[in-house]
C-alpha cells in the first residue's frame, strides 16, 4: 500500500500556467472531503484548462460525482481550496455560489428536465430567473438554443414525450442558456446504446466548437468516448489524482492501474469491482 502511494504522481499545478497566459477554469488544491468515516477526497489537486474538453474518470465510488458537486458548490471541502473561473470559492457564502453557478452549466444524466413544463419553458427557466428579456427576446433566445442542440420547433413539446437523447439535448440547451464559461456533463453516455453515445459525443464536440471560450468537463465511465473526444483526461484513484494527460498519454501508459482500467479487466491492482 505504501509502495503504491509513492507511485502516485501528483499533477504539476504550474503546467497550465506555463502552457498559456490564461488561468485554469477550475483549480483544486489539496481538497479533502469525508462523510463520517468515509474519506472520499484525500488531498485532490488538479487544474482544468480553459477551452478544453476534460474527462474525469475512475472507478465507481472514487469521488467523481463528489468532485463535480464541489465545482458547483453543492458540497463544500473540509480542507483545501477550489478556484472556479478565477474566484476562490472554498469557503464562499451561498450568495456567492448563486452568482458563480450562473457561469456554470450542468447536464444531468437524464437531463433532469422539469416535467411540469414544456421544452421551451425548461430552456427559458434560467433566463427568466436571471435575465430581464422581453417575451419576444426570450422566445428568440429559446429558439436559438434549441436550434443549437438540433431540436428546432420543439418549444411546445412535452417533456414526457421526448426520447432520452432528446432529453439530453434539451438539458444541454438549458445548461447553455446563461452562456456559461464552464459546462459540466454528469455521465452523459451512461446506459446509452453505442449510436446514441456517439451522438452525445458529437454534441459535446459540436458545442465546444460552436461556443467560443467554453470549457467542458465530462464525468464518464465510457472509455471509448473518453479516448475519442477528450483533450485531457484526469484519472481519480483512492481520493487523489492518479494520472492526468492526453488520450495518447493514457494509451501509452504502462502503469498497471491505468492499463487494467482502460482494458476493463477484472485482474490487476485495482482488484475486482464489488457487484
Amino acid at each position: 500500500m505504501k509502495g503504491r502511494a509513492e507511485k502516485i504522481p501528483q499533477p504539476k499545478l504550474s503546467d497550465s500556467a506555463a502552457a498559456g497566459a490564461e488561468s485554469p477554469i477550475v483549480q483544486f488544491s489539496n481538497v479533502r472531503k469525508s462523510f463520517g468515516n468515509q474519506h472520499v477526497l484525500r488531498g485532490l489537486s488538479f487544474e482544468l484548462r480553459r477551452g478544453e474538453i476534460s474527462f474525469i474518470i475512475g472507478r465507481s465510488g472514487e469521488g467523481k460525482s463528489v468532485t463535480i458537486k464541489h465545482v458547483i458548490g453543492v458540497l463544500h471541502p473540509d480542507e483545501g481550496s477550489i478556484i472556479v473561473d478565477g474566484h476562490d470559492l472554498s469557503h464562499a457564502r451561498e450568495e456567492d455560489w448563486i452568482e458563480a453557478r450562473k457561469k456554470i452549466g450542468l447536464l444531468f444524466q437524464d437531463g433532469a428536465l422539469f416535467d411540469s413544463m414544456t421544452v421551451g419553458e425548461n430552456v427559458a427557466f434560467p433566463i427568466r430567473e436571471f435575465q430581464k428579456l422581453s417575451p419576444k427576446q426570450l422566445t428568440d433566445r429559446v429558439n436559438e438554443l434549441l436550434e443549437l442542440v438540433g431540436l428546432p420547433d420543439y418549444g411546445m413539446a412535452q417533456v414526457p414525450d421526448l426520447s432520452i437523447g432528446e432529453r439530453k439535448r434539451v438539458g444541454l440547451a438549458r445548461a447553455l442558456a446563461l452562456n456559461p464559461s464552464l459546462l459540466l456533463y454528469d455521465e452523459p453516455t451512461t446506459g446509452m446504446d453505442p449510436l446514441v453515445s456517439e451522438l452525445i459525443d458529437t454534441l459535446i464536440v459540436d458545442m465546444q466548437k460552436k461556443i467560443k471560450g467554453l470549457s467542458s468537463v465530462v464525468i464518464s465511465h465510457d472509455i471509448q468516448s473518453v479516448l475519442r473526444i477528450a483533450d485531457r483526461i484526469f484519472f481519480l484513484h483512492e481520493g487523489k489524482m492518479y494520472l492526468s494527460g492526453t488520450p495518447d498519454d493514457f494509451r501509452r501508459s504502462s502503469d498497471p492501474v491505468i492499463q487494467q482500467f482502460l482494458a476493463g479487466s477484472l485482474t490487476g491492482p485495482l482488484g475486482q469491482p464489488i457487484a
Binding site: I72, V74, W97, I98, E99, A100, R101, K102, I104, L106, F108, Q109, D110, A112, L113, F114, D115, F125, P126, E129, F130, G171, R174, L178
Partner: peptide, 12 residues
C-alpha cells in the same frame, strides 16, 4: 429525478 438538484445547480 434530480430536478431539485438541477434547480440548485442553476442558482435557483
Amino acid at each position: 429525478n434530480e430536478q431539485l438538484d438541477a434547480m440548485e445547480a442553476m442558482g435557483v
